[in-house]
């Protein structure tokens, strides 16, 4: 094998691109889970975002309009889930799985006419001389705008959750919805908004896949990215910065797996593909065995339906 053919600078730059879809989807799901809702439909929301973003971008020849459409489409699909689980009190796990299956089927239907088409190119930002710097230029200043936006969303989510009253209320709703209700907070409203934010982020992540990362439309193209995003939230123990670290780690594994193959490394690809899940399981085991801080653990009301009493 020949590892010298792997260029670390290119590797880091491309892992950032590879990680952006799961980073976006995971940060959205983090907010959803922090509000106490478990939405297993991330994969479905991503792929609906991917196809609608692709379709609008091709039709208008503007990638940014496509991404906007993906945000709206993701939020709308999430709204179905919100209506089912928050208003009709349907089971969250079953509804989330149904959402994924629905999203996969629906996107295949809509995407039939878009197979084999090349979408408009999403330009990389040009920071002038900065982009030309060796190493740093390629890693930090050589990306399209979505990479920066995803980082911004992570920072903003962290700030909002931990430093503002709104974020505090959202965490309170997820921690103990009965207490939050007793204090007069609108549990259902907070959760519906969180679910829609999660859908919007997942949709944008999906569009990034079909417009930048791949870029083309094929049926089922998310290929488990939504599930990795879900695993990532647990892996990160519901903390935004750890989600970023985890996304880049998992993104790195994905890129590395391609590079290793190209380098003739004789390890079955499947081992690397399953590694994010294996790592997540290990983290889960470590978390549940360490009798540690309560703040490490999952939101207290995660996955529980809220019925207002009295």
């Amino acid at each position: 094998m020949d590892l010298s053919s792997i260029n670390p600078v290119v590797l880091i730059a491309s892992l950032m691109v590879a990680a952006t879809p799961i980073l976006l989807a995971a940060i959205g799901e983090l907010v959803v889970e922090k509000s106490g809702v478990l939405n297993l439909g991330v994969e479905g929301m991503m792929i609906v975002g991917a196809v609608s973003g692709f379709a609008i971008a091709v039709t208008t020849q503007n990638p940014y309009l496509g991404m906007l459409a993906a945000i709206v489409a993701g939020a709308l699909v999430a709204l179905i889930f919100a209506a089912l689980t928050q208003l009709l009190m349907a089971n969250q796990v079953a509804s989330g799985l149904a959402l994924t299956l629905f999203g996969l089927g629906f996107s295949a239907l809509v995407g039939q006419n878009y197979v084999g088409i090349v979408p408009p190119r999403t330009p990389k930002l040009d920071f002038g001389p900065l982009t030309d710097l060796p190493v740093v230029g390629r890693i930090i200043f050589g990306h399209d705008i979505l990479v920066y936006i995803s980082l911004l969303i992570v920072a903003a989510t962290w700030f909002w959750l931990n430093k503002t009253q709104g974020g505090r209320v959202l965490r309170a709703v997820g921690e103990n919805h009965d207490s939050a209700h007793a204090l007069g907070y609108k549990v259902t409203r907070v959760r519906i908004l969180a679910i829609m934010f999660g859908g919007a982020c997942a949709g944008l992540g999906g569009a990034y896949l079909s417009l930048v990362r791949v870029p083309s439309w094929t049926e089922g193209m998310t290929a488990g990215a939504g599930w990795i995003a879900l695993a990532l939230v647990v892996f990160a123990s519901w903390r935004p910065w750890r989600v970023l670290a985890g996304a880049y780690l998992f993104g790195g594994i994905m890129v590395l797996q391609l590079n290793l193959q190209a380098a003739g490394f004789r390890i079955p690809v499947e081992y690397l593909s399953m590694s994010p899940y294996l790592i997540t399981i290990v983290v889960l085991v470590i978390m549940s065995s360490s009798r540690g801080r309560r703040s490490m653990a999952a939101p207290g009301s995660l996955g529980r339906s809220f019925h207002a009493a009295g």
């Binding site: 505090r168 939050a180 204090l183």
Partner: peptide, 24 residues
Amino acid sequence: VFQHFSLFDAMDVAENVALGMDNP
């Protein structure tokens, strides 16, 4: 002051107090 406490275990005292105020 509620019978069954309206508190949040995974948050600190100051945050719990802030959640009971309208403009903390």
